[in-house]
Simulated assay, not measured.
Amino acid sequence: MFSWALLFFIIAIVCAVLGFTTLAGAAATIAQILFVVALALAVLSAVFEALRGRPPI
């Protein structure tokens, strides 16, 4: 999921450089949402793994 966020971030940069500001804003917003969701899932996964008693990798 982090790779999707990075992809949309790169798309946003390219669109901003080319002057497509609306598309760049939309891609940046999607990248932010994907990053937050991926971060939340990573934290939840780490918490549940700790609660199960398995050590983190």
Rank of each mutant, 00 (worst) to 15 (best):
Thr29Glu: 03
Ile13Met: 13
Gly53Ile: 00
Met1Thr: 15
Gln32Tyr: 12
Phe20Glu: 04
Phe2Val: 08
Met1His: 09
Ile13Gln: 11
Ile10His: 12
Ala50Met: 09
Ile11Lys: 15
Val17Tyr: 05
Val43Ser: 06
Leu41Trp: 01
Phe8Lys: 13
Ser45Asp: 15
Leu44Ala: 10
Leu41Val: 06
Ile33Lys: 04
Phe35Val: 00
Pro56Lys: 06
Ala31Ser: 15
Ala46Thr: 05
Glu49Met: 04
Leu23Gln: 07
Leu23Glu: 07
Val37Asn: 05
Ala50Cys: 05
Phe9Gly: 08
Ala26Asp: 02
Thr22Gln: 07
Phe9Thr: 15
Phe48Val: 14
Val17Phe: 06
Ala5Arg: 05
Leu18Arg: 10
Leu34Gly: 00
Gly19Pro: 01
Ile10Trp: 09
Phe8His: 14
Val14Asp: 07
Ser3Asn: 11
Arg54Asp: 03
Phe20Met: 02
Ile30Pro: 01
Val47Asn: 08
Ala28Pro: 00
Ala27Pro: 00
Thr22Pro: 02
Glu49Thr: 03
Ala42Ile: 02
Leu51Cys: 05
Gln32His: 06
Phe2Ser: 07
Pro56Leu: 11
Glu49Ile: 02
Phe20Asn: 03
Val43Ile: 15
Leu34Glu: 00
Ala42Gln: 10
Ala31Val: 05
Ala38Glu: 12
Val37Trp: 07
Gly19Ile: 01
Val14Ala: 12
Leu41Lys: 04
Val14Gly: 04
Ala16Val: 01
Pro56Ile: 09
Pro55Leu: 14
Leu6Ala: 11
Gln32Ser: 10
Leu6Gln: 11
Phe8Met: 13
Leu23Arg: 01
Ile10Ser: 12
Cys15Pro: 00
Phe20Ser: 03
Ile13Val: 12
Ala31Trp: 00
Phe48Ala: 06
Ala46Gln: 12
Phe48Cys: 06
Ile30Phe: 04
Ile11Arg: 14
Arg54Gln: 10
Val14Cys: 11
Cys15Gln: 12
Leu18Asp: 11
Ala40Gln: 07
Ile11Ser: 13
Ala31Asn: 02
Val17Ser: 05
Ser3Ala: 12
Trp4Met: 11
Val43Phe: 03
Ser45Gln: 11
Trp4Gln: 11
Ala50Asp: 14
Thr29Trp: 01
Ala46Ser: 15
Ser45Leu: 09
Ala50Val: 04
Ile10Val: 08
Phe2Ile: 09
Ile10Arg: 14
Phe8Asp: 12
Ala28Gln: 01
Gly25Pro: 13
Phe8Ile: 03
Ala46Glu: 10
Gly25Leu: 01
Gln32Leu: 13
Ala40Ile: 15
Ile11Ala: 15
Phe8Trp: 10
Ala16Thr: 06
Phe9Asp: 09
Met1Asp: 14
Phe8Cys: 10
Val36Trp: 06
Leu41Met: 13
Met1Phe: 10
Val17Cys: 05
Trp4Ala: 12
Phe2Met: 10
Val47Leu: 15
Ala27Arg: 00
Thr21Pro: 01
Ala38Thr: 15
Ile11Leu: 15
Trp4Pro: 04
Val37Asp: 02
Val14Asn: 07
Leu51Asp: 02
Val43Thr: 07
Ala12Gly: 14
Val47Pro: 07
Thr22Asp: 09
Leu41Asn: 10
Leu39Tyr: 04
Arg54Glu: 03
Leu18Phe: 05
Gln32Cys: 12
Phe35Met: 10
Ile30Met: 05
Leu41Glu: 13
Ser3Thr: 06
Pro55Lys: 12
Ile30Arg: 01
Gly53His: 08
